[in-house]
Simulated scan of single mutants.
Amino acid sequence: MKKVSQILGRKGSNVVTITPDITVLDALKQMAEKNIGSIVVLENGHYVGVLTERDYARKVILKGKSSTTTLVNEIMSTGLPRITPDNSLETCMQIMSENNIRYLPVFENDQLCGIISINDVIKETILTQKETIEHLQNYIHS
């Protein structure tokens, strides 16, 4: 059973962060520069939430707000479920599906140590399937 720690081992645990008092536009610029769909929000070094492209679309654009005057703390997602490096991919998929979310912050000993996306889970699942197929083919041919 694959675990979150294996995803973090492949992609790394580097987390791009912002503070809650910057404008949404500045946050979006950072996300575009890094080619990411979410960014972790830290206040005084402590995790407070995540800003996602979905937050922007639903809480700024659809409400007629301006990304140049709206602050991150007005639209960021808070209270997301937390996972640990020991959680299985199946657990992550279940949490993401039940909560209709695409990102999960990863904590170890109450410290943020990474973030995983549904894309990370899908990539790891595909990799696992390829490994299984390869093992089965080797078994059949031996």
Rank of each mutant, 00 (worst) to 15 (best):
L80T: 00
S142Q: 13
S13M: 13
T132Q: 10
L136N: 03
L136G: 01
T91E: 15
D86H: 09
N44E: 12
V48E: 06
I116E: 01
D110V: 04
V48P: 06
L42V: 10
T17C: 10
I61C: 12
I133W: 06
Q111K: 11
M31P: 09
D120P: 02
H46A: 04
V48F: 10
D86Y: 01
N100I: 15
Q129D: 12
K59L: 07
A57Q: 15
L136F: 04
T19P: 09
K29N: 04
L112A: 05
T70M: 08
L104D: 03
S67N: 11
L51C: 01
E53C: 05
G12N: 00
K29F: 13
T52K: 08
T125Q: 01
K29Q: 15
L62G: 12
I140W: 09
M96R: 03
G79C: 02
N73Q: 04
I116Y: 10
I7R: 11
I75P: 09
A32G: 05
I83M: 00
S67E: 15
P85N: 02
E53W: 03
K29L: 15
G64D: 05
G9Y: 11
I18D: 11
L89P: 07
G45A: 08
E108K: 14
R58T: 12
D120V: 00
V106L: 01
E124W: 03
N100S: 14
V24F: 07
G49M: 07
N138K: 09
N35H: 07
V121Q: 04
I118W: 04
V40H: 07
I122V: 12
E108Y: 10
I101D: 04
T84V: 11
L127G: 05
T68S: 13
S13V: 06
S67H: 14
Q129I: 08
T70W: 08
G49S: 03
T132W: 14
N14D: 07
C92F: 06
V4P: 04
T19A: 04
Q6G: 02
M76V: 07
N119L: 08
I18A: 12
K63F: 10
S66L: 02
C113I: 13
S38K: 01
E33K: 07
K29I: 14
D110Q: 14
E108P: 07
N99E: 14
M96T: 00
E134P: 03
L62E: 15
V72L: 00
R54I: 04
L71P: 01
A57K: 12
N87Y: 14
T23A: 06
P105C: 11
K63Y: 09
K63Q: 13
P85H: 03
T68N: 10
L25H: 15
S88M: 05
Q6H: 06
T78P: 00
N87A: 13
M31G: 08
V24D: 09
Y139G: 12
V60M: 04
L127K: 03
Y56L: 13
V72E: 03
H135Y: 13
I140A: 12
H135V: 11
Y139F: 02
N138F: 06
I115M: 00
I36R: 02
S5M: 07
G45R: 00
V4C: 02
T91R: 10
E74T: 01
Q111D: 14
I122T: 06
